[in-house]
């Protein structure tokens, strides 16, 4: 379980990126942190494994105050996939890239081998095991970045803007992987401003603006609050815009699959 208690974070240059954050995340949840660039999403993620420590207030990861722990030990519990995660590759081969963190965490050698094999298979990267990570395509690099984190099986997986620059096929794959990891009991925290992607995932949404949480609720609740989304400089999903403007047919803003909406429109037109 993750607890933020009145967390405030001020960068050395004086910019207050987090302002009075109170938050509880149960294990096994899928959470989306939403908000425009600069709202504080990434700063919040960096508090999960102690890369940043609160200026005031505290962050508890399974009861452990992050201020009393190291990034290395917190990272065993919380794996963060950063936005340009492919920027962290440095090993000659993909297998070694996968083994790096496992060795840092002092896993026994045979466990390292097993985990690397598992991660290669899970992310469909087996045929590339001895290739250089730099030779992978964009989508494959993203998958490797995720495989690296999954390899040590942290309880909590945080993804920072996983869909930036990704095409629809890659996004669909991402949703599949996230759901799969969640089914294995992982807590998933995604920071994103990709409303359509988040709408498809249908998680609990924490909406942020200027370092504060302005709303915390189900995807349906948050994404249909058009006024609030605008205030947070987000654009509502198309289905929500559509249903909100079909008030003359008795529609209320809602999240639904396009097919359902079409059937509903047809029914009301008759």
């Amino acid at each position: 379980m993750i607890v933020f208690e009145n967390v405030e974070y001020v960068y050395p240059n004086g910019f207050k990126a987090l302002n009075g954050i109170n938050l509880e995340i149960e294990s096994g949840e899928i959470i989306a942190l939403m908000g425009e660039n600069g709202a504080g999403k990434t700063t919040l993620l960096k508090h999960l494994n102690g890369l940043l420590k609160p200026t005031s207030g505290r962050v508890l990861i399974d009861g452990v105050d992050t201020r009393n722990s190291t990034v290395a030990s917190l990272s065993r519990k919380v794996g963060i996939v950063f936005q340009n995660a492919e920027d962290m590759f440095f090993s000659p081969t993909i297998s070694e890239e996968l083994a790096f963190a496992l060795n840092n965490f002092n896993f026994p050698e045979e466990v390292v081998k097993k985990r690397v094999e598992w991660a290669l298979k899970f992310m469909e990267l087996e045929e590339y095991r001895d290739k250089s990570p730099f030779l992978l395509s964009g989508g494959e690099k993203k998958r490797l970045a995720l495989a690296i984190i999954l390899a040590w099986s942290p309880d909590i997986i945080a993804l920072d803007e996983p869909t930036v620059g990704q095409d629809i096929l890659q996004k669909e794959k991402m949703i599949q992987i996230i759901k799969q990891a969640n089914q294995q009991g992982k807590t998933i925290i995604i920071s994103s401003h990709d409303v359509e992607f988040i709408a498809d995932l249908n998680p609990r949404i924490i909406l942020m603006s200027r370092g504060r949480i302005v709303k915390d609720g189900s995807a349906e609740e948050v994404l249909t609050d058009i006024q609030l989304l605008h205030e947070c400089r987000l654009i509502p999903p198309q289905i929500v815009s559509l249903t909100s403007r079909l008030d003359f047919l008795g529609f209320k803003p809602k999240l639904a699959r396009p097919e359902e909406v079409a059937v509903e429109i047809a029914r009301r037109l008759r």
């Binding site: 095409d167 429109i265 047809a266």
Partner: peptide
């Protein structure tokens, strides 16, 4: 066009389905 990695906007999907129904 999805098979080409192009995302069809949701409204287009709604309209396509609507045509099928109507």
């Amino acid at each position: 066009v999805v098979s080409y990695g192009v995302s069809t906007p949701r409204v287009v999907k709604v309209a396509t389905q609507l045509k099928k129904v109507l």
